[in-house]
Every structure is written in C-alpha cells, then in structure tokens.
C-alpha cells in the first residue's frame, strides 16, 4: 500500500459519500445516471468475487463490501425510493450499456492473465470500469445545469483513478518485476475519458460559474 493508492481509495470512497449525500440531502437524483450506477455495481460484483474465497486484509474486505453495498444503495434510491425515483430522468438516461458490456466481455475472454471464471470476470470488471462513466457524462451534457454535488461526484470519481495511475508508476519504480498491463492501460483510458470533463469542471470552478458541458 502506498500513499497514492490510499489517497485513490479515499477519493473513491468520498465520491460515493458525496453522491449519497446529494441524493439524501436533496431527495433528488437529477443529473445522476442510473445506467452508470448499475454498471458500477456490476464492476464491483464481478471484481470482488474473491471476497468469497480469499482474505487479503480487513481494509481490503471492508472497502469491497462498502463499494458493493453503497452502489446497491444508490441504485435502490433511484429505483425504489418514493421521492427520489420521481426525479430520475429515464428519458435522458438512454445510453445503450450493452454496447459497453458486450465488447468488454469479449475482450476479457480474449485478453486476460488467466482463462478462469474469476480471472475473466475480474478482467471484465477492469475493462468495464474504464467506460462505465460514459452514460453519466452523456447525461451531464444533456442536462444543462449540473448541480454542484453531482459535478463534485464525477470529479472525485475521475480523480481516484488518476491517483491510481500515480500508484502504478510508484509501484513500477519500487517493485521490480511489477507488471499489470491490463489495469495500466484500462486505467489510462479511464482517466483520459475524464479529461474533457476535468477541463470544463476546473474552468467553471475558476470562473466561479455553474458547470455546464457543451453538448
């Protein structure tokens, strides 16, 4: 564990707390893509199957359970909560997620470290996480005024994987023989997808104006 990875995990944790805070405080999920949340739950469930058969540390187990439960909780809020579900804009949240999930599964079946069920699913989760934010970014372009908390949520989410990039560089420099091409390339693509959002987010923050992505 190094500071970059710990900071990355804390940023990821914080992003989910900000999202839950937004939904719970405003009793609204306006601007939040249910599709992206469902993709994240799929990412966590397929990545953390090792909860069933291996133990790494209390921290590792706690964080995995938190990510699975919190994303399930967000989905419940958007789908089931009597007030929040009224504010979900399904007409705007129309990204075809199968166009993301199927190529990721095909790629995971062909490019992986080990052709076993758990390893292919883990690889699938790595590829899927790289593109899971797309429905959310498309929704933000469609909903003109992005509220601050939703903007902060996406910013933190992008920041966590950027911190992981620093973690991988640190591990390459300090751990001879450390090679994780699949996560390195996926993580780089994932962070690259956020660049455009980062640009508009930081610009709106500096000009102290409302965040709005050009459609």
């Amino acid at each position: 564990m190094n500071i970059f990875r710990f900071a990355g995990d804390m940023t990821h944790l914080l992003s989910i707390i900000v999202l839950l805070l937004k939904i719970n405080a405003t009793k609204s999920c306006a601007g939040v893509s249910l599709k992206t949340q469902e993709l994240y739950l799929l990412v966590f469930v397929t990545r953390y199957l090792d909860l069933l058969y291996s133990y790494i540390s209390l921290y590792n187990t706690f964080m995995k359970l938190f990510f699975i439960c919190s994303s399930g909780c967000v989905i419940w809020y958007i789908r089931e909560h009597k007030t929040v579900s009224q504010t979900y804009d399904s007409a705007q949240d129309t990204f075809r997620v199968l166009f993301l999930a199927c190529p990721c599964m095909i790629l995971a079946l062909t490019v992986n470290h080990d052709f076993t069920v758990t390893e292919v699913l883990w690889t699938f989760s790595i590829y899927l996480e790289a593109v899971a934010i797309l429905p959310q970014l498309v929704l933000l372009q469609r909903t003109k005024n992005v509220d601050t908390l939703t903007g902060n949520y996406v910013f933190l989410l992008g920041g966590y994987r950027a911190l992981y990039l620093l973690n991988w560089i640190y591990r390459i420099l300090t751990e001879p023989g450390y090679r994780q091409w699949i996560v390195w390339i996926s993580g780089t693509i994932q962070t690259a997808i956020y660049c455009d959002f980062f640009y508009y987010y930081i610009k709106s923050w500096r000009n102290n104006e409302r965040l709005s992505l050009p459609s």
Binding site: D9, H12, R47, S54, I56, N60, M63, E119, N167, R179
Partner: peptide, 10 residues
C-alpha cells in the same frame, strides 16, 4: 492470476 499474486488492489 498467472503471476500468482492475488489482485491486492481494489
């Protein structure tokens, strides 16, 4: 994984 190391990152 083939390298033997379990996936220790989240």
């Amino acid at each position: 994984a083939a390298m033997g190391a379990p996936h220790d990152e989240l």
